[in-house]
Design a protein around this nucleic acid. Structure first.
Length: 871
DNA sequence: ACCTCCCGCCATGCT
DNA sequence: AGCATGGCGGGAGGT
């Protein structure tokens, strides 16, 4: 049934393809697409090509619209082609950039492998859904649809979905259909996996392998033996092949699924994750992972081919996990040399799933993970529980309603054409996120295009670089969130060409609540964990930003940026280029610092990383060092905190997401994604702002997390928000605007900042991420907070604009939320990450923040951030 | 030359 | 039989 429905909905346009997924070359696509009008059989055609020009509803359509709105160029192209694939559009856009091309020619050429990478695809995929979807809504995912929209073979979607499924971020409903759970269950799942991993003694196995390696070189053969000591299976074992670990409400429903449940990709993914969770450094090399995974299966086989295959699969999994920001690629330098490895950048998890977050607990479900692996293993196929899955707290429901309302408002807005995706249609709230995502995607595309152009230009001229950087930053920052709100970000980033990912995550910001002096409204401030740690009150000063309510998104991710940077060349490069240009103005100084600070990973992570870090590039180290230095420096600011108006936020994340739509629709820079629904439009916020101080926007947000590189971007500004601004630079403009927008939303950038103009725009980023869900309890405060913005550097007042903000007070944090018990550190971790965590964190944080914050507010610096280029 | 990992053939198993 | 899934590994792009 469902399928049918789905098909109906979507398919109309989509269905073109024929069943065979096979290749499509991108190039060909366009052509085909045009041609194909059709519908294909419902079944799955894989190929994507979308065409459907018409349909408004599909996300694609929305994207198209957005894109077109955003960039006329693209539109033109499409027209020319007649196509409209989203994807294609994007790609094309790139081409266009190159332009020159008449198009076709170029088009074909384009999509480079990277553009087709699983990581990028995953980003796109994730961008379509909110990190913390409203349970109330229907969050169905139609694989065919997604494949079409993303213009990829269905096969690729399976790769993504399988990994997501292993984390219980999605669950299969039926053929072709999955339900998106987002990160609600993530912490729980991770906790469970950690428990299972512990049972299996993976840590020991890892150690053994390493030991052996060191001692000997590798002999794979020998490796196998590894187990001797450990025995993996001990625990329940069975594991070896262990069964797929399931969570109670998340079991696979579809029978079919069951059959292959234990098959590799899912199980491999879980095992791979377990390795990270169990190992101390949390850095796992592919080689070790492959050995362990093979070992379980059979110890022996050394086959090289088998090993190679395993590695290949691990790359696939790693790409998805990277997109989720759970891991990051690094290189471990061992005696032998550098080996590819991945570092866990996800939330710290307690062994039992339970631990983590209280929040989580509820969110997800009821269940608690059983830890016994056996149980887990037991496939709960039966679980019949209807969908036990996510039952949500009443509060959530309320949120949903509010969101919906917002949505309506938004929808009504002219700007957004948005179509809802099928899912949306089906669901209510869900759509927003997707829209957001779409928007993000669009932005990305635009950015990409622009970026490409920009890059060129930039090289030539430095001026605008910022944008790009920002985008990166965002990404970095946001990404972590991505799931949350951010999916967008990622997308944005991508455009850069960069990497997709970034992870960063975590950055969680710690929320602190403060009373707002002016408005009286209280705000929560989110600090980055990292910052928090590092930051002393003094630091805080610099960092804190106030934000108007709506959404806060956070910052996140900063820490990683560094690593990423180092690690990821691409990103770096891109960034660098951009950064370099950065206008000076803006935040130059601080930025770098900030970025560094931001970089910090969530504190916890950082610590770990530092300890562990084996690898890393010197560059990283350098950065870190730099950062450290910076951190210390009082002057610097970090934009770590966000202020969130408590008042507004009630709805929270979802709302924010919703708001997105609007923005998105607009395309205008401002628009973007994140806005809170309410604020939705940023401008709107003014009221809020006013309260906040925002008014002008000048406030710059803090940036926070920006990676150093990104920092540079900061300056971006240009106009981010402003529409007008967009204009400023022609080429970039749109993109820049978008970027700014995004950034702003994300909080990375302050609107005011530099930008030129207007700050007004002010959009605040909302962070979708916030997860409403989790928090019911906590929540409120926190969530609300999300919104924040950062301001720039200045704490208090500062900022240049004066926005100053509320921060000042800081002091009193208002009680709202926070309980504060915990340390910040933890909180810091990832706020973003898990909703669950967040909530708690927030509370905790608050307390902490308060303290810290108080001081924080003070700071004043502007942000300087920007610049820095950093390196 | 090595690292990544895309691509898509084709097996598997549900419908 | 047809189709959805997804294992698997050739081989190409990137560096």
């Amino acid at each position: 049934m469902e399928n049918e429905k789905e098909n109906h909905f979507f398919e109309p346009h989509k269905r073109i393809l024929i069943k065979t997924p096979q290749k499509e070359s991108a190039t060909s696509n366009s052509v085909l697409a045009e041609i194909q009008p059709n519908f294909g059989p419902l079944t799955t055609p894989t190929k994507p090509k979308e065409i459907s020009p018409g349909e408004p509803w599909t996300p694609t359509a929305n994207l198209k619209m957005l894109i077109s709105a955003a960039s006329p160029e693209i539109r033109n192209r499409d027209q020319k082609r007649g196509l409209s694939d989203n994807r294609t559009g994007i790609l094309e856009a790139k081409d266009c950039l190159h332009e020159h091309l008449s198009g076709d020619e170029y088009e074909k050429s384009q999509p480079s492998r990277k553009e087709k990478s699983l990581g990028l695809l995953c980003h796109k995929f994730l961008a379509r859904y909110p990190n913390y979807p409203n349970p109330a809504v229907n969050n169905d995912i139609c694989l065919d649809e997604v494949a079409e929209e993303l213009n990829v073979e269905r096969r690729r979607i399976y790769d993504i979905v399988n990994v997501l499924e292993s984390l219980h971020m999605v669950s299969r409903l039926a053929k072709n259909r999955y339900t998106w759970h987002g990160r609600h269950n993530l912490n729980k799942t991770l906790g469970t996996l950690k428990s299972v991993g512990m049972e299996n003694k993976y840590a020991e196995q890892i150690m053994m392998i390493k030991k052996r390696e060191y001692e000997q070189e590798f002999d794979f053969n020998s490796d196998k033996s590894e187990e001797p000591t450990v025995k993996p299976g001990s625990g329940q074992n069975g594991h070896s092949d262990m069964c797929f670990v399931e969570l109670p409400g998340v079991e696979f429903r579809a029978a079919s699924v069951n059959s292959r449940k234990d098959k590799s990709l899912r199980v491999m993914s879980q095992k791979f994750v377990m390795l990270f969770l169990v190992s101390t450094p949390q850095i796992v090399s592919l080689e070790v992972a492959a050995k362990i995974l093979i070992g379980e299966d059979h110890v022996e086989d050394l086959d090289k081919s088998k090993f190679k295959t395993k590695i290949r699969r691990l790359y696939d999994i790693a790409n998805v996990l990277s997109s989720l920001e759970l891991i990051k690629k690094v290189h471990v330098t061992e005696e032998r040399g550098r080996k590819p490895a991945f570092k866990w950048t996800g939330p710290e998890i307690c062994p039992n799933s339970t631990v983590l977050s209280p929040v989580t607990s509820f969110d997800s479900c009821d269940l608690e993970p059983s830890h016994s692996s056996k149980e887990q293993c037991a496939k709960n196929l039966f679980s019949a529980t209807g969908k036990p899955n996510f039952t949500r707290h009443p509060s959530l429901i309320k949120l949903v309603k509010s969101i919906e309302n917002d949505r309506r408002k938004i929808n009504s807005a002219p700007s957004s054409p948005i179509k809802t995706s099928k899912a949306e249609s089906s669901l209510k709230s869900a759509p927003f996120p997707s829209k957001m995502a779409q928007l993000a995607a669009i932005c990305k595309m635009q950015l990409e295009e622009q970026s490409s152009e920009l890059k060129k230009k930039v090289k030539m001229q430095l001026t605008r670089p910022t944008v790009h950087c920002q985008s990166l930053d965002f990404i970095a920052n946001s990404e972590p969130n991505r799931s949350l709100a951010s999916s967008q970000t990622p997308s944005l980033i991508q455009p850069l060409g960069v990497l997709p990912l970034i992870h960063s995550p975590l950055s969680s910001a710690v929320p602190v609540i403060m009373p707002h002096a002016h408005s009286g409204a209280s705000y929560a401030i989110y600090l980055h964990p990292s910052q928090a740690q590092t930051v002393t009150p003094q630091n805080l000063n610099s960092t804190v930003h106030t934000v108007p309510c709506t959404n806060v998104t956070g910052i996140k991710g900063s820490a990683e940026s560094i690593t990423k940077v180092t690690t990821e060349k691409i990103a770096n490069d891109v960034v660098k280029s951009d950064v370099t240009t950065k206008p000076g103005k803006a935040l130059p100084t601080s930025e770098g610092q900030i970025s560094r600070n931001e970089e910090r990973e969530p504190t916890a992570e950082r610590c770990l990383k530092r300890q562990n870090v084996l690898e890393d590039n010197s560059s990283k180290k350098k950065f870190k060092e730099d950062l450290k230095g910076l951190e210390n420096v009082p002057a610097t600011l970090f934009p770590s905190g966000y202020l969130i108006p408590l008042t507004q936020c009630p709805s929270l994340s979802t709302e924010s997401i919703l708001s997105h739509k609007e923005n998105a629709g607009a395309c205008s820079p401002n628009n973007r994604i994140y806005n809170s629904p309410i604020t939705g439009v940023i401008p709107v916020t003014t009221s809020d702002l006013s309260a906040v101080n925002f008014p002008t926007f000048h406030v710059t947000p803090l940036k926070l997390m920006v990676s150093p590189t990104s920092v540079g971007t900061v300056p971006v500004v240009n106009s981010p928000s402003l529409p007008s601004s967009s204009h400023s630079i022609p080429v970039q403009n749109p993109s820049s605007a978008i970027v700014n927008f995004t950034l702003q939303h994300l909080g990375l950038i302050s609107p005011g900042v530099q930008v030129s103009a207007n700050a007004g725009a002010g959009s605040v980023p909302a962070s979708p991420r916030t997860e409403p869900v989790s928090a019911p309890s906590e929540t409120t405060g926190m969530q609300q907070g999300k919104v924040t913005k950062h301001e720039s550097p200045v704490p208090g007042r500062g900022q240049v604009n004066g926005q100053s903000i509320t921060v000042t007070t800081g002091q009193q944090p208002v009680p709202v939320t926070p309980k504060g018990s915990q340390l910040m550190t933890e909180n810091f971790f990832r706020t973003p990450g898990g909703p669950t965590k967040l909530a708690p964190t927030c509370d905790d944080l608050d307390g902490a923040h308060k303290t810290s914050l108080g001081p924080l507010f003070v700071p004043q610096r502007k942000l300087e951030v920007s610049t820095e280029d950093v390196h």
